[in-house]
Design a protein around this nucleic acid. Structure first.
Ligand SMILES: [Mn+2]
Ligand SMILES: [Mn+2]
Ligand SMILES: [Zn+2]
Ligand SMILES: [Zn+2]
Lengths: 143, 143
DNA sequence: CAACGAATTAGAACAATTCTAAACTGTGAG
DNA sequence: CTCACAGTTTAGAATTGTTCTAATTCGTTG
């Protein structure tokens, strides 16, 4: 009864399996970060916020590794990058089709399920170009 | 016949009037920048691109002033900021309702007129929040 | 338990942007 | 027209988020 962790985060085994499945070596750092990122449904993190979180949990991981890991997870399809703020990059654990509310003031992202919003009338792109994706950001403020 | 300018940019008088109307002192720098920005319909500039442009035209304006001016013009409603790239801020001379194609690779923005795209099904924001605007970015790539 | 390539890391480097504080300039009162 | 003064510009330093470098450490496989 020495260790009394009360976090409902996914087990190291689950994280390890997920990493291997994605073709990534399950290092201590990646297992820790995956544990935090994928414990709950949807999360929107920043390199800094995740670094603070993992550090706050007493785990030593450098900020450079957090950046590396976020990018590797993104390349592996485990995360997706969201661009809503000129100053910060967000990473989203929800890789499915969906949109966002963005609370500029507090840097908060809230998911809008994929089927909720319908975008009609997107014109054909100029010749030689093809559509990669359509992003909708609903910018909101406190009233 | 000494000076043979061939730019169809708006006159200094027009720029000056526009600035005064917006409550901004028509300084040499602001008049030059307004002349470049508002000569044609729609433009999407970056602080750097505008600085290069004005410098290339032989006008001496510091980069700090370009940043100051872009922000002042934005506050005054003459410009609007567009967020599509985590690394760069774009400013748009089209302040009306419209959307964009964004060519990530070359940092190119292309307007989509306001009535073209219809966004339906935007849910009510969480309590205490109100919608400020809905941005649609159609990310495209060369094929 | 090597050995070797992959991953991590501290710290330097970068790029975009903002800040500072000193010099300059537009304006309007006299 | 002149001057005074608030507003503006500017060089350069500072800040911030992110990436790079090169040395160390680690995971995997034989
Ligand atoms: Mn941006
Ligand atoms: Mn930055
Ligand atoms: Zn999301
Ligand atoms: Zn535009």
């Amino acid at each position: 009864m020495a260790k009394a962790s009360r976090e409902p985060k996914i087990s190291a085994e689950e994280a390890t399996a997920r990493l291997r499945h994605a073709g990534l070596r399950p290092t201590r750092q990646r297992v820790e970060l995956a544990g935090l990122l994928f414990q709950d449904g949807d999360r929107h993190v920043t390199a800094e916020s995740l670094h603070d979180e993992v550090s706050g949990a007493g785990v030593k991981v450098s900020l450079a590794t957090v950046y590396n890991t976020l990018h590797q997870f993104t390349e592996a399809g485990l995360l997706r990058q969201v661009i809503v703020d000129a100053a910060r990059s967000y990473f989203d654990t929800n890789t499915g089709d969906h949109q966002h509310f963005f609370l500029e003031k507090e840097g908060l992202l809230i998911d809008i399920p994929g089927e909720t919003i319908a975008v009609a009338g997107v014109p054909a792109p100029p010749p030689g170009l093809s559509v990669d994706r359509v992003d909708v950001v609903v910018r909101v403020r406190r009233n």
